[in-house]
């Protein structure tokens, strides 16, 4: 009997009474691009049209509810959009997830979609979806249409990842 009471007590601890219970997303790191693509040495040539990030960022999906984290009984989808700081309209950003990361829940651990490059626009578009806690999902970016015809500048845009409870 004491054992049951103990289990119930533990379970109750997992329930965040009075708190908003929600799916959570955490983005770690920024994409890193090799700048050797811009080391042009042959006169008359253009820059390589495309540059692909070599590392970062990574995404973690979790839940504020301890039981949900434990059992993974929540479905989610991740959408992506951008907000330009300094950008040129001819530059196109594409994104994909380059791995699955790792599942962190007991029962429901899944991830699907988003393994092919897709355009990143100012409007949120679905990137991938899944169930349960998911850690260290690697994200890769690609920038297309790089050219000497694009004004030389330090370009920057903010990439937003939004997780929606399904």
């Amino acid at each position: 009997m004491k054992k049951y009471i103990y289990y119930i007590f533990i379970l109750i601890l997992f329930i965040p009474f009075g708190a908003k219970s929600q799916v959570q997303i955490s983005v770690t790191g920024d994409p890193v691009f090799l700048h050797t693509v811009f080391n042009l040495t042959e006169a008359g040539s253009d820059y390589s049209n495309t540059v692909t990030s070599t590392s970062g960022p990574y995404i973690d999906i979790s839940h504020s509810n301890g039981l949900s984290r434990l059992f993974g009984n929540f479905s989610w989808r991740v959408a992506i959009n951008k907000s330009d700081i300094i950008w040129n309209s001819s530059l196109q950003i594409q994104v994909r997830r380059s791995g699955d990361g790792s599942g962190g829940s007991w029962f429901y651990n899944s991830i699907s979609g988003g393994t092919n490059f897709q355009n990143v626009t100012d409007i949120p578009n679905n990137l991938f979806q899944g169930m349960g806690v998911r850690n260290d999902v690697p994200i890769q970016f690609r920038i297309n249409n790089i050219s000497v015809l694009v004004p030389a500048d330090d370009y920057e845009t903010t990439i937003y990842f939004t997780v929606y409870q399904q």
């Binding site: 799916v23 959570q24 997303i25 691009f33 540059v51 951008k82 903010t158 990439i159 937003y160 939004t162």
Partner: peptide, 11 residues
């Protein structure tokens, strides 16, 4: 409940 986080893409 939704949640959001971001990163910076710069080059």
């Amino acid at each position: 409940q939704d949640d959001e986080d971001d990163c910076s893409l710069a080059f």
